[in-house]
Amino acid sequence: MSLAVRSCTFSDIEFRNIKRSHVEAWVKKMSQDGLAPGTVKTRYNNVRSVLRGARNDRMLATDPADGVTLPRARKAEHAMSIPSPSDVGKLLEAADPWFLSFVAMCGFAGLRLGEAAAVQLTDIDFLRRTLKVERQIQRAGGGEVLITPPKYGSERLVHIPDGLVQVLARHVEQIGVHSPQKWLFLGDGGLPPHQNTVGYWWRKTVKAAGLEAVKLHDLRHFYASGLIAAGCDVVTVQRALGHSKATTTLNTYAHLWPTAEDRTRSAAGAMMDDALGISADSLRTHQA
C-alpha cells in the first residue's frame, strides 16, 4: 500500500477534483516505467480501495477508477519461468555458505523472500521435519525493516524433506543464529535482511552459477511444480504455498496439472501396455 501511494501521480489532488483521466495517466506511467501488469494491478487495486472508501463516505460522487483499462497480463504458462533441477543444483553449489539455506528454503519449502528472511530457530522442528511460517520482512521507507504477518495472512506449517532439515541443522551449527530472537539470517541493526540485501546476494549467486534471468521467486514456482508433478492435489499445493484460496493456486498453476486428455492418454497407454504384455506372455507359452 505504501509503495502504491508513493507511486501515485495524483496523490496531491483533492478527492473532489480527482478524475478518471488522472487514474488512467497513472496506470499508463506505471506501464511505461516497466512495472509488470500484475504489479500495476495490485497498486491500482490498493489505491482504488481508498477511492471506494471515499465514495462510500460520500466524499466522492463516483469512483474515478471505475472502468480504467489495465495492461493485459501474460498467460501463466508463458509468463512463468521454472528452473530445472540442474539449475537449482548449480545455485545451491554457487551460494555462499550462509545463503545456501536461504536458497534451499525457497526451493524446497516454497517460501517467499520475506518469509525466508524472517525465519527463527524456534520455527524449525527438526524432529517432526516441519517449518512454521509466521512472519515476513518488509522494507519501509528509508530502508527500515518491518516485521509483519505473512502476505495475505498465509501463516502455515510446511512439511520439509530430510535434505532441507540437514541443510538447516548445518546452518545452525556452522553459521549460528543471531540476536535474542534467534534469526537465521542477519541484516543491519540486529534485524533480518530486507529485499535489497537479499537481492544483492541472489544476483551474486546467479552469476556465480553461470545462469541468467533466474529470479528468486522462480524457486517458489519450482517447488509448486514439483508438488504438482508428484501428484499433489490443489488443496495440498494451496496449503503448502500459503495461498488464501484454491482459486489463486489454480489461476497460477492450472497449466501444470494434467488435463483430462492427458489422463485419458495415460490410462489408454497403461491398458495397451497390459494388453501387449499379456499377448507376449501368451505367445511365449504357445512357442514353448
Rank of each mutant, 00 (worst) to 15 (best):
L186P: 01
I175F: 09
L186M: 05
R203L: 08
Q195E: 15
K151P: 14
G153S: 00
H194A: 11
Q181N: 07
Q195A: 08
P180M: 01
V177A: 07
T148C: 05
A140G: 15
G189I: 14
V167C: 02
D162H: 12
W202Y: 02
V145Q: 01
F185Q: 02
N196R: 13
P192M: 05
V198F: 00
L164C: 09
Y200H: 10
L157C: 05
I147R: 10
A169M: 10
W201Q: 10
A140E: 12
L157Y: 04
T205F: 05
G143R: 08
V145F: 02
L191D: 00
P180Q: 08
R170W: 13
L157V: 14
V206M: 04
A169L: 09
G190K: 07
E144G: 08
I147S: 04
Q166L: 14
V165M: 07
L157W: 00
H194P: 02
H178D: 05
G163D: 01
Q195M: 10
D162Y: 15
G141L: 09
I147H: 03
S179Q: 14
A169C: 04
P150K: 00
N196F: 11
E155P: 05
T148I: 12
P192R: 01
G141S: 11
Y200R: 15
G187V: 05
H178M: 01
E155N: 15
Q195S: 13
T197W: 13
K151N: 14
L184T: 13
I175H: 08
P180N: 03
R203H: 04
G176R: 15
G189T: 13
P150I: 06
